[in-house]
Design a protein around this nucleic acid. Structure first.
Length: 102
DNA sequence: CATATGACACTAT
DNA sequence: AATAGTGCCATAT
């Protein structure tokens, strides 16, 4: 069992290209549904840098938040991944990936 | 060990 | 619908 943030990175790596997830979902995937904030904190540390697709993580409403490099950059990357971003938002109904959950 | 910080989520207004 | 306030958790100092 690795540290909490290590698990976050692990589950985040499972997110396929062209899909996105939320901090809360990651928190849930690691067993701490209330640790959404801690997840974002782990992403900020981002010790794995470009290896970690942290740009695929959005708010619970698909709202573009986070990304120290700039939301604009994040949106750009997501669009490049094939995700449709409108008004800094994403259709979770279409691009929300679930961690092997149903 | 206690305090402070932060890329969130939820509820109420 | 948008904004404000509160609660939660892990990490760093």
């Amino acid at each position: 069992m690795k540290s909490f943030n290590e698990q976050c990175y692990f589950v985040l790596r499972k997110v396929p290209r062209g899909k996105v997830t939320t901090y809360g979902e990651i928190a849930r995937a690691v067993g701490n549904p209330r640790a959404a904030r801690a997840v974002g904190n782990a992403m900020n540390k981002n010790p794995h840098a470009p290896r970690l697709p942290c740009h695929r993580v959005v708010g619970s409403d698909g709202k573009m938040i986070g990304f120290a490099s700039g939301i604009d950059k994040k949106i750009k990357i997501l669009r490049a991944e094939g995700v449709v971003v409108e008004k800094e938002k994403i259709d979770l109904e279409k691009f929300f990936f679930r961690f092997g959950k149903l």
